[in-house]
Design a protein around this nucleic acid. Structure first.
Lengths: 220, 220
DNA sequence: AAACTTACCTGGCCC
DNA sequence: CGGGCCAGGTAAGTT
């Protein structure tokens, strides 16, 4: 996969803290098989978090185009939104260490928006995420990763006001739990466009691998 | 049964609006057999209701110690909490008149708490229950009763701001529906302690009769 | 379609 | 101070 800037300042090209295009060239020595080490980290999306995303609401609003393009088609074989009330997404920590985060993913029909709810605030606390920082979601095949970077990090930043609290390291390859992969009824074309930071981006050659989605019927 | 104050101000001894220690000395003339008339009303628990308990949430949070001590051991022979998702408790109106209230009793694992849901708001409306008022649950053998009293009623109240809307009368003894009594695998000792208003109370001689519990698997 | 009802989540607080 | 309890929100289904 590659990111191709389609217009405007190519701020999207700067997503390397946990973003697109980073090759897993270093082996962390545990867990990774040969194929996974060869695969690139495919960027999915970044979001500059709002005050609400890191505040008391305990939720991250997921841009609709991302949710509908990358998440929904792989949930329950693309079944109706309402049919996945308790989807839980697991993301490995982009800094490595074997840590993982589980976020509940759902749709709030009142606001017509997709959100990550349960589990999100734990990530915000742990990474000391603040408004203006950026969260970054990517994947290697079926494994999902989440990372973040401070506001101002990247090209064009005059002076990063805060630094990353931990150096970025390659993720440890650890199997965290048995994974239920959706038998992919993938039909999306391999060239896809979306907007990021007001820039039209094109995903080239994204292969139709299933995401690391785990559905738990959490109804009690 | 008797209530024995174990410490502190014995505010617990004032639960007579629908509380412990009231002898059914007057026969209401219908329904009660000799044994039931002889039995005392055994107090189970009171709760000073919160704004949420009487508000739009339509649920009463049941203190865990009460639920686990008095309700759960008699549900499904003490089976797991998760196994009784739709238990319905029937309470006769403590004021008499033959009226009864049915409340759905369930456990919300998300908040780790027991609640009465369906049916509760009808009681709140009918009795004009307000925050600060007290609901009182007691039983006579297998028959459950519910009553309430206004905030400020009881010893130490300088001036009751509101009066009871109806005078307390002895309950009519009416068989309301066929009752499924759990074949009691009762093992609890006859002297039990619990805390109420910060006061340690002791239940003496509470006999191991089954409660008027009706289980309905109401999950949709 | 608005009101009601259930279900679910989370922070505050207390033990 | 860590975990559990619960009060009070919010979301979504139901009627």
């Amino acid at each position: 996969m590659a990111l191709t800037a389609g217009g405007g300042e190519s701020r999207g090209a700067e997503q390397d803290g946990g973003g697109g295009g980073v090759e897993l060239s270093r082996s962390s020595g545990n867990g990774g098989n040969g194929e996974e080490r060869r695969m690139r980290r495919e960027h999915m999306f970044d979001k500059v978090v709002t005050p609400s995303d890191v505040g008391k609401l305990n939720r991250l609003v997921v841009p609709k185009h991302f949710a509908e393009r990358h998440i929904l088609p792989r949930l329950l074989g693309g079944a109706a939104r309402a049919a996945c009330p308790g989807a839980v997404l697991r993301f490995e920590d982009g800094r490595g260490g074997g840590r993982a985060w589980a976020f509940r993913f759902s749709y709030w029909s009142s606001s017509q928006s997709y959100v990550m709810t349960k589990g999100w605030s734990a990530f915000v606390r742990d990474r000391r995420l603040a408004a203006g920082d950026t969260v970054s979601f990517c994947r290697t095949g079926a494994r999902l990763f989440i990372d973040c970077r401070r506001r101002g990090t990247g090209i064009g930043a005059s002076a990063p006001p805060t630094r990353l609290l931990a150096p970025a390291v390659m993720p440890q390859v650890v199997t965290l739990m048995p994974q239920r992969s959706t038998s992919s009824g993938e039909t999306a074309p391999h060239v896809r466009c979306f907007r990021l930071f007001g820039v039209d981006l094109e995903l080239i050659g994204a292969e139709p691998l299933s995401l690391d989605l785990q559905l738990a019927l959490m109804r009690r």
